[in-house]
Write a protein that binds this DNA or RNA. Structure first.
Lengths: 357, 357
DNA sequence: CTGAAAGCGCTTACAG
DNA sequence: CTGAAAGCGCTTACAG
């Protein structure tokens, strides 16, 4: 198939005996507004359907119309659930007959600006962006750029005054829930394993809550496992534990910011003859598929990504059809799932279990 | 920032005192061919750089030029390594200052045609497609569409006469390696756990090799764990084992088409007092991060996705710069990694380990 | 109620 | 060696 013979408005206009501008107007739902006869409108739509017309997004965008294109800016190369998230978003976009542009961002804020500028210039109809804990997006330049899109949705870890629709995907309350759980079952010496730089909020949420519950927090409670480039989370975690604890492991509970980190920690502890959860209670994060098949089953945190994806889809397409609607705020909180690795199973768990996706 | 004031060729032409067509020619590297004075060319390029010019992809595409856009058609929603794969591809595309369009496909061949048509009409510079075992892409319509792109790369499980560059990402030889390994350590009763419909090739590779090595293959050796929509692989695997083996588990080795399935199987066997690998040797697939932290460490298959991504990038951009070069074929074979869950560690393993990404 | 015209920002023959 | 002109397929005032 040569790339040329797609159906154009001009072609429809010929068939209908009208001008191509009338066809364009009708096809953009502006017929009623301009008082074009219903028969004429129907005739045009009928021909368009019969010839299988779809608007050329390049031409439409160039002239200021819609491009049926949505940009998704996400942190690619995070842990698996984040990978899956982008795919779910892409499929929703595709189901609506839009095309999804995926881009990695937030690794360098310079890139974010460059990509967003490019997306704007490509006249994407909407942009969906992931925001981190560090308020990287709160620059005048980015906020201004965001306004250039007919629709924009930010998925953030916390609430702020974004000039667009905002979904707050809260993870910090889950960090507090884990600390509460460890306190509830009588643990006193908490630790948390995560990439410390860039995780101030998470570390704080967990350790502050632990402290509030009377646990003994020490400077060693935050264990840094920042991976080197291309290093696996599991290897980085094992390395960190080897480095920090050549002798004794001085904690009785350990929360890890990923299930992969938790698996590595469990394996590391086991090799030292430490029993889980008897000696050390463990929790992971993200409720990975493999978590409840481990021995013991790994406690974790359910992200509720499905709810987030539902909200994204709803907000984007509502905004595209009602540009003037007031900005919206949607909250989705992640939830701790107690399992055997974290000691006694919380009585809350089966209550929560139900609405976990 | 309003969407209007991007730099145009006209703007550069004004600064340079030339016509915008001359500017366009120079910027598209056609200056030498048309004998435009080197000084003029340099002047134009200098201004373009100073004003931070980038070509409007919408306008360029509409007129038949490049759009700096690459479509990626992949099976989204597969197991994790597949998720990660798309992200790696996207990042390579982004590093080259192209934009990546991601689409799910192969679930329905109708969608594949629709998406490919849309990508063609959007005048994407290249398309990168995943192909399955079932030759779904071998229709005249799709082959014809593929030719409409300046560059196209197919990543297939097997070699065929695709009218574009082809990467053969072979998994079947790894299935045979697993069977060989089980035979080498003296196992006689093999089973394989996977979604049987649509896995004829995999099942055949494993069981035929097992048979060739004198193992006792039975009709029950292929255990079907096809997940229901939205069902997790782990749950589907557990369910399948419950359903097929209410009594005894009559095998002494089990290969699973994913690590998630293997984890579920290990957990299921353990609950029945079956020892791994003593009673049943187990292997998974994809060499997931968590695999070698399990107890016992899970044998698996390394996909060598890095090599595939390298090949994709190389082929796409070579093709874009040399449209006339002969079609290429690149082979990347996945490799079995013996670990404790699969019984005695193969002497081959540390040889293989090295070039595993 | 509908059509003729301009123009989005490029690319590409065609003139000179 | 360079410019004037046409046109990709739309959208959108503007006329009538």
């Amino acid at each position: 198939m040569a790339r040329s013979q797609f159906i154009t408005t001009r072609r429809i206009a010929e068939e209908a005996g009208l001008s191509h501008s009338t066809v364009s107007l009708v096809l953009n739902q502006r017929g009623d507004e301009l008082g074009i006869k219903p028969e004429t409108q129907n005739h045009v739509r009928e021909i368009a359907k019969r010839l299988n017309y779809t608007r050329n997004p390049l031409a439409s965008g160039l002239k200021g119309g819609r491009t049926q294109t949505i940009g998704v800016m996400w942190i690619l190369g995070g842990p698996h659930p984040s990978d899956e998230m982008t795919h779910r978003i892409v499929r929703r976009i595709q189901d609506r007959e839009y095309v999804a542009n995926l881009a990695d961002h937030l690794s360098q804020i310079k890139d974010t600006v460059r990509i967003l500028t490019d997306f704007s210039r490509r006249r994407m109809d909407a942009v969906i962006m992931q925001d981190g804990d560090e308020d990287q997006l709160h620059t005048p330049e980015i906020l201004e750029l965001l306004k250039s899109f007919p629709a924009a949705v930010i998925v953030s870890t916390h609430e702020w005054d974004a000039p667009c629709d905002l979904i707050i995907h809260d993870r910090l309350s889950a960090y507090r829930q884990v600390a509460d759980h460890f306190a509830d079952i009588g643990r006193r010496r908490p630790a948390i394993l995560l990439p410390v730089p860039g995780s101030r909020a998470k570390t704080g949420a967990f350790l502050d809550q632990a402290r509030a519950r009377g646990m003994r927090v020490t400077p060693h409670s935050a264990i840094d496992m920042t991976p080197r480039p291309d290093q696996k989370i599991t290897d980085a975690s094992t390395e960190a534990l080897d480095r920090e604890f050549p002798g004794q492991f001085p904690f009785d509970c350990l929360h890890c910011s990923t299930d992969e980190g938790a698996v590595a920690a469990m394996s590391w502890l086991r090799r030292r003859g430490i029993r889980i959860p008897h000696d050390v209670a463990i929790s992971g994060f993200n409720d990975s598929q493999f978590s409840d098949c481990l021995d013991p089953p790994l406690a974790s945190v359910a992200r509720r990504d499905n709810e987030v994806v539902d909200a994204i889809e709803k907000l984007v397409f509502q905004r595209l059809s009602s540009p003037q609607a007031p900005l919206s705020r949607t909250h989705v909180a992640m939830r701790f799932l107690a399992r055997a690795s974290a000691g006694a199973v919380s009585h809350l768990n089966h209550l929560l279990q139900e609405d976990v996706s």
